[in-house]
């Protein structure tokens, strides 16, 4: 499991994590995708904004925030991507197919909100 993309990380008492190092969301959490429209470069497709999904996995390798990177600002902007599961029927009310059909996408932390925040 060690070094795995999807593995859980053991918590050891006394180890103080750096800012942002501990993922904000856990597997199984329900999340709402933000509906903002920032200017610049980012990787959040329009068709998913405002949709509700579930965290399937936490991407353990932290990555730079694209919105910052687009302006050449990489330092201090690392965060987690989450693999989010969204039912097709949640995305498309007129979806033709099985109700079990779904979408998976990796979304950067700053695009996800807890349902209570919305």
């Amino acid at each position: 499991m060690e070094g795995s993309l999807l593995a859980k990380i053991e918590k050891i008492s006394g180890v103080v994590p750096a800012e942002g190092e501990v993922p904000v969301f856990n597997e199984g959490d329900t999340v709402v995708i933000a509906t903002r429209s920032p200017i610049g470069h980012y990787r959040m497709p329009t068709y998913l904004r405002g949709k509700i999904g579930k965290i399937e996995a936490i991407m353990r390798q932290m990555a730079v925030d694209n919105e910052e990177e687009g302006y050449g600002r990489n330092a201090g902007s690392k965060g987690h991507y989450y693999r989010v599961a969204i039912p097709m029927t949640e995305i498309w009310p007129d979806y033709i197919g099985s109700a079990n059909d779904g979408l998976r996408i990796e979304i950067f932390e700053n695009w996800l909100e807890k349902p209570s925040d919305v």
Binding site: A63, L103, R104, I105, E106
Partner: peptide, 10 residues
């Protein structure tokens, strides 16, 4: 189940 993965990140 059809599962579509949309590649947007690293």
């Amino acid at each position: 189940e059809i599962r579509v993965s949309d590649s947007t990140a690293i």
